[in-house]
Nucleic acid binder design. Structure first.
Lengths: 339, 339
DNA sequence: CTGAAAGCGCTTACAG
DNA sequence: CTGAAAGCGCTTACAG
């Protein structure tokens, strides 16, 4: 099935291809009457603009790539929607790739996006990503890009995310105030930068008081994370609070606690990071440090669309969101009643 | 920044453009030694394949469009990931659009995808979609497409989704067996086809026994759904069970019940549709009819990639998944213990 | 205000 | 085994 081109439109309307092209872009050079006539020809023969051909000639793609590990985590889902909306507003088409936190898969996606000549890429790097992984693909192809939510040590470029160190500290201080004595950290991939940052901040926030973090309780788990196992190990060590790497881990941990007859909150405090909407819907509600999913997505897209002036810092702009703690029943019994 | 083209590669390697092109597609016409030499030239000058140019010439786009209302609902998130993975396996790039269940937005997305010359579109139609909305864009442009999860009355085309009528019936029978006497249905958009199907099946499943559905308790809500309000209305009518349009509504309803001092399960049974992973993590676990998110995504992608033979039915293939009910503590106190 | 020609970066026959 | 030419569907100067 051959689709009509501007050539067919031109001959149907009795004008040249160039004139049709100008009408397509609604040029003021063409008188309204002519425009109307040519547009009638378009609908008459069922013409559909071929944007890819146009973009090839003008050497732009009006396309934006987004790579996330996974869209099942509500944090990334929210972020993805924010990016899609912002891209759509700017007339850009969004290409989505899910890396499954796998560097090989991520590499294929980056390559495909470079070959598609995307105008830019937003990437939540897989946790094992090294600078060379990004240099080889994005760098070599000269594709503008912004890292989101996870930075890559030793790789300088624009970055947007929550301030994980500050958020961890806030959480640590909160638990100390709530009287926690022994706190375990559970979840996250060992190599993850946000994980290190969160633990770092947490220790800082817990330290000033008498509260001691039982560092040996800090369970490190990979993708095959089994909450029951981690919770058993933590409980065996004796503890009164658990900090999860993020809300998704926390949900699994809460369920594991209940299965052991323990009430999250009254029996063991639990708190985490991201503050996905589901955190508020748990029973009891889950205390969580906001991850600013939507804001991160929007700001990252804007950074990509509006590159820095020559005067700006070339070594990479950093946008960090100040932490906000959403305190709920999982660390404050007074808030368990619901509502 | 001008990127090198096959022309540069050709002159660097001392061959013609055609030879380079053949190497790019790993043609067996070119001897391995020549290939190796040309590939060295590519890396030497930093050549990146321009897939869009290639596709324009060969009149394919190797691109697939997916339109969902929103990816925040874990059901659609799961479906989106399944589609992305399946597309990636077939060497296709995924373009994602979120309609926010808005027909206008959906129209813009469909138009953009047609202009991008996607090879096909998977669409979860916005609930207000009429046949003309799809005919004008996809039909006129001759873009192959498959509807997922929601059909459009009066529009014949390939469709993949759960069997909502059968699922509703299963749920109705389950509640009848559990001794429900008065059941309210809450949530969903009034015009939604799955909603009608679910209610239809539910009534069928409840009917054979003495159980009576208080039809007047069936609250219809739009995007501005306020669970508290709906729950109050339902409780005022007197009831012992609530069926939610889907799990996301159910979570809000459970939270509203708790805020009123009612235990989901023991005090008011609650069940819903989709069976997103979060349903199992609620406390108590939420009884839900499976929505087969992953399977729906995979099958729909396959339908798009492997169009029917000429001999097949032209009026649209239908793939309906047989319902499976996941019974949990929200309708069976024996299962509340957790685990 | 409109047209003829060149070209975006590839692939596709067709020669040799 | 390799090259010269035409063309995918547009846009972009440049004339007139």
């Amino acid at each position: 099935m051959k689709r009509p081109t501007i050539r067919e439109v031109a001959s149907h309307a009795g004008v040249s291809k160039a004139t049709v092209s100008l009408v397509l872009r609604d040029s003021s050079q063409i008188p309204p009457v002519t425009k109307a006539r040519i547009r009638e020809s378009m609908t008459a023969i069922g013409y559909v603009y071929n944007r890819r051909a146009a973009e090839m000639r003008s050497l732009r793609s009006r396309t934006l790539g987004l790579i996330v590990a996974n869209v099942r985590n509500p944090y990334f889902a929210e972020l993805t929607m924010a990016v899609e909306e912002r891209a759509h507003e700017s007339g850009l088409t969004l290409i989505l790739g899910c890396s499954a936190d796998d560097v090989g898969r991520q590499h294929e996606l980056l390559r495909a996006m470079a070959e598609q000549r995307v105008d830019g890429v937003l990437i939540l790097p897989a946790s094992q990503t090294r600078p060379a992984d990004l240099t080889k693909t994005l760098g070599a192809a000269g594709v503008p890009h912004v890292l989101i939510a996870r930075s890559v040590p030793g790789y300088k470029c624009d970055y947007v995310g929550a301030d994980n160190v500050a958020a961890g500290k806030l959480l640590g201080e909160h638990l100390r105030e709530r009287g926690a004595k022994r706190v375990a950290f559970i979840g996250g991939v060992e190599t993850s930068v946000p994980r290190k940052d969160r633990i770092h901040g947490l220790l800082d926030g817990l330290a000033p008081g008498v509260t001691a973090l039982a560092a040996d309780l800090s369970s490190e788990r990979d993708a095959a994370f089994e909450p029951a196992e981690a919770v058993d190990a933590a409980l065996a060590g004796g503890l009164d609070a658990i900090v999860a790497y993020n809300d998704m881990y926390a949900f699994g941990i809460m369920s594991a606690l209940r299965a052991r007859g323990l009430q999250p909150g009254p029996d063991v405090m639990i708190a985490s990071f991201d503050n996905v909407p589901e955190a508020a819907r748990q029973f009891p509600g889950l205390t969580s440090a906001d991850g600013f999913a939507e804001q991160v997505g929007v700001r990252a897209t804007e950074l990509l669309l509006y590159p820095p002036k020559a005067a700006d810092d070339i070594s990479g702009r950093q946008v960090l969101f100040e932490p906000v703690l959403r305190v709920r029943g999982s660390t404050d019994p007074a808030l368990v009643a619901g509502g």
